[in-house]
Amino acid sequence: MEAAEKNVSNKKLISFRIIKKASEGDIQAINEVLKHYEGYIANLSIRKMYDEYGSVHYCVDETLRRRLETKLIKTILGFKIKR
């Protein structure tokens, strides 16, 4: 249990203030959320490509990356905070 708690405390979380501002449509806050998930989105967007010689290359599929970013923005804007 202690190891799991250490993992959570080592990760930087998005502050409530940023989440609230992003859900209200603040562009800078939305960009901060996108920046926070930038690495994760890039990792999800990696695809295996083959060149004309049959060699394998891994690269970020920009179309997929943009689609994931757009989906995240849409989700942020639809997020409702209840108290």
Rank of each mutant, 00 (worst) to 15 (best):
S55H: 12
E52S: 12
N43L: 09
T75V: 06
I81A: 13
V8S: 00
I41Y: 01
S23H: 03
E2T: 15
G25K: 04
S9P: 01
V8L: 04
T70I: 02
L44M: 15
K74R: 13
F16N: 12
L77G: 11
E69S: 09
I46G: 03
T70M: 03
R66S: 14
T75S: 14
Y53S: 12
Y58N: 13
S23E: 01
L72T: 07
N7T: 13
C59L: 12
G39W: 04
M49G: 05
G39C: 05
Y50H: 03
E32R: 03
S15E: 13
D26F: 01
F79G: 11
I19D: 03
E52P: 03
N7K: 14
I30Q: 03
N10L: 08
K21D: 13
S9D: 07
E69L: 02
E5I: 07
Y37F: 15
I18A: 10
I73G: 05
L34D: 09
T63A: 11
T63N: 11
K82Q: 09
I30T: 02
K6E: 10
Y50N: 11
H36E: 08
L72W: 06
S15V: 05
A22E: 02
A22D: 05
H36W: 05
A3N: 12
E24V: 00
I19R: 04
E24I: 02
S15P: 05
K80P: 02
G39S: 13
H57P: 02
K80I: 10
L34A: 11
R83E: 14
I30S: 00
R17H: 01
I27F: 00
